[in-house]
């Protein structure tokens, strides 16, 4: 397979998997952050938001240490017979989930908060259990939030570089994603290849944002009614 195309498919695979995991992991965190009044809420929210401000290399460095053969996570994965995660696709997925977490949690949290208490109280008086309330009232009303979260998680994962460099390296078919491929092309002065990939990324990013705005515009109108 063409190495550039391999990098593209690997990137799409990584971003899709990361997005799915993040929606599963991020939704309960966002729901809890939106509803809890516990003091621990603020520290947790800050931890979740850390990847927004940390240089990706810092995050990547700590993940590398944690997941390495001498790190606690590395011990755990070795004990489970999974080997160590750095420089594998699985390690890349784990790192991407940490890195893109705030991009899922924050839009979802905002969406849940903007629903307010009332619709949930109404649903409870109409015999809906808390889980039922969430699935049939909160989730549908937070649909714009889910769309934003999914698109941001996907796009952000596609665009990551520093964390991948630290944790994944550049193993073709395993950890060599698009951004790394572009970097390698530029390093070896293959500007033609770099142009194809970089231009493709530019177009992709633009399309993603355009679709997001379009869809949210429509959903907003519907949500306000």
């Amino acid at each position: 397979m063409d190495p550039d195309w391999q990098a593209v498919t690997l990137t799409v695979k990584l971003a899709t998997l990361t997005t799915l995991i993040l929606l599963v992991v991020g939704t309960p965190i966002a729901w809890w952050l939106a509803r809890s009044r516990h003091w621990i809420k603020r520290p947790i929210a800050s931890v979740v938001a850390l990847p927004l401000v940390l240089p990706p290399t810092v995050l990547g460095f700590y993940l590398l240490v944690l997941m390495g053969p001498n790190g606690p996570l590395g011990h755990a994965t070795t004990a489970l017979g999974l080997g160590t995660l750095p420089f594998t696709f699985a390690g890349l997925v784990a790192a991407s989930v940490c890195y893109s977490l705030p991009f899922v949690v924050q839009p979802l949290q905002n969406a849940f908060e903007s629903i307010g208490e009332r619709p949930l109280e109404v649903a409870a008086t109409l015999r809906a259990s808390p889980l039922d309330c969430f699935l049939t009232v909160a989730a549908p009303l937070a649909r714009p939030g889910f769309l934003t979260a999914a698109v941001l998680a996907f796009a952000h994962t596609v665009g990551e570089f520093g964390v991948v460099l630290m944790i994944g390296g550049s193993i073709p078919g395993e950890t060599k994603v698009l951004s790394i491929a572009i970097y390698d092309h530029v390093e070896t002065l293959e500007y033609g290849h770099a142009h194809w990939l970089a231009g493709g990324m530019l177009l992709f990013s633009f399309l993603v944002l355009l679709i997001l705005h379009q869809a949210n515009g429509r959903l907003d109108k519907w949500g306000r009614s």
């Binding site: 009332r118 619709p119 109280e121 109404v122 649903a123 409870a124 008086t125 109409l126 015999r127 809906a128 259990s129 808390p130 039922d132 309330c133 049939t136 009232v137 549908p140 009303l141 649909r143 519907w222 949500g223 009614s225």
Partner: peptide, 27 residues
Amino acid sequence: VHKRPLAYVFQEASLFPHLSVRGNLEY
């Protein structure tokens, strides 16, 4: 709340905006 056999009519109608009138009644 959801196990109490009561019904509550709030000050504002608070209909579910994502459901039709029928969907609200059937909820």
